[in-house]
């Protein structure tokens, strides 16, 4: 249903575009993240630039962008992309080269945020989360996530190989710094899949970022991997959900411009606006994702800073997502994962 809805939205966006010249279609990951983007980026930009922004939600499916670029009917102007997808899309010509001259000096941003085809929006982390009301004895690591004796009940993981193989290795005793080295070997991959298979009878899969907090609140699962911002959003709604930061995997999301959009100029203006320190600081106040502009960090108070994945205490035992590894080996892993899930 999600994909059907997502298919309809571009069609509607196309219809709307026909009679509104100064509009920009911005594609995000929806949910609490989309809401925060609306307040921090879309609404202020609409006011200052006199443009209209049509937000569209997706779950990162690059096929839609590929189909648009190949048929020459590009209706998405700015896309929020995960690092591996950005890198691949840049190589394969799905995204425009970014006009850095109009965005700002690269030195104003953390190094990971700088890419030929994109600029980092925020630092996010996939973390172990749980309902603190239900688990009085809090889980601390992925080994606890795998411990079905101490923590009986279902667990939720995102339905793909990405992250899960890393979590499985950490649960099996591999240190965060060794994870990608281990995963690069054949034995390491076998070990990760074996460990994942151990948990299989206790797993419930999620696909959209809004699902894990829902599962936790409904009591369907005792623990879930989740985007830290979504847990933060649930906390702001008064839910007693908690995060175990150790073993979290952090990564950046990027703004990118699909190749051939007719609104490239406005898209670049939008991106330049959205990565400004003020806008980024406002976004970080709305949802606990870390800014990529170094100046934005100085605008945040200590309480907000402590909630970010980039805060030293949170990042201490975390793992940086290796998008190069996933660019190279993602397909093989995802295919094997899918074969395994379908069995």
């Amino acid at each position: 249903m999600k994909s059907l809805v997502a298919l309809c939205i571009p069609a509607m966006a196309l219809a709307l575009q026909a009679h509104a010249e100064n509009t920009l279609t911005v594609v995000n990951f929806g949910g609490a993240n989309g809401t925060a983007q609306k307040k921090a980026y879309y609404e202020p930009f609409e006011k200052s630039a006199g443009a209209r922004i049509i937000p569209v939600e997706y779950n990162g499916e690059q096929a839609k962008i590929k189909a648009m670029v190949e048929t020459g009917k590009v209706t998405w102007d700015v896309v929020e992309a995960e690092s591996a997808d950005l890198d691949r899309g840049c190589d394969e010509g799905l995204y425009e080269k970014l006009d850095w001259g109009r965005i700002g000096p690269k030195s104003d941003f953390i190094p990971a945020a700088v890419h030929d085809c994109g600029i980092g929006i925020f630092v996010w982390s996939t973390v172990l989360s749980y309902d603190a009301n239900r688990l009085k004895d809090p889980p601390k690591s992925w080994a606890d996530f795998w411990d079905v004796k101490r923590f009986p009940g279902k667990r939720a993981l995102r339905k793909n190989a990405r992250f899960n193989l890393e979590f499985a290795l950490m649960a099996d005793g591999v240190k965060p710094a060794e994870v990608y080295k281990t995963l690069a070997t054949k034995d390491g991959v076998e070990r990760a899949f074996r460990k994942l298979a151990e948990l299989r009878p206790h797993l419930q899969w999620w696909e959209a970022g809004a699902q894990p907090p829902q599962f936790l609140v409904a009591g369907d699962v005792v623990m879930a991997s989740a985007y830290n911002g979504r847990i933060d959003a649930a906390q702001r709604e008064g839910r007693n959900l908690a995060i175990a930061w150790a073993g979290g995997i952090y990564d950046l999301d990027y703004w990118a411009i699909p190749k051939g959009t007719p609104n490239r100029d406005l898209a670049t203006r939008y991106i330049a606006f959205a990565v400004s320190p003020n806008a980024q600081a406002e976004f970080a106040r709305l949802i606990s994702y870390g800014p990529t502009a170094t100046k934005a960090l100085t605008k945040l108070d200590a309480k907000t800073l402590a909630q970010l994945p980039s805060a030293p205490a949170n990042a201490k035992d975390a793992l940086k997502f290796d998008f190069q590894f996933w660019s190279d080996h993602g397909e093989a892993m995802e295919k094997r994962f899918n074969a395994w899930v379908a069995q």
């Binding site: 691949r88 840049c90 190589d91 394969e92 010509g93 190069q324 660019s327 190279d328 080996h329 397909e331 093989a332 892993m333």
Partner: peptide
């Protein structure tokens, strides 16, 4: 074009993981 190399890299990578970064 980078996209020509990218298309080749993608195709070879479906055959064997690692080809993408090697080609690019």
């Amino acid at each position: 074009e980078q996209s020509d190399a990218g298309t080749l890299a993608r195709r070879l990578n479906t055959e064997v993981g690692g080809a993408r970064s090697l080609v690019m």
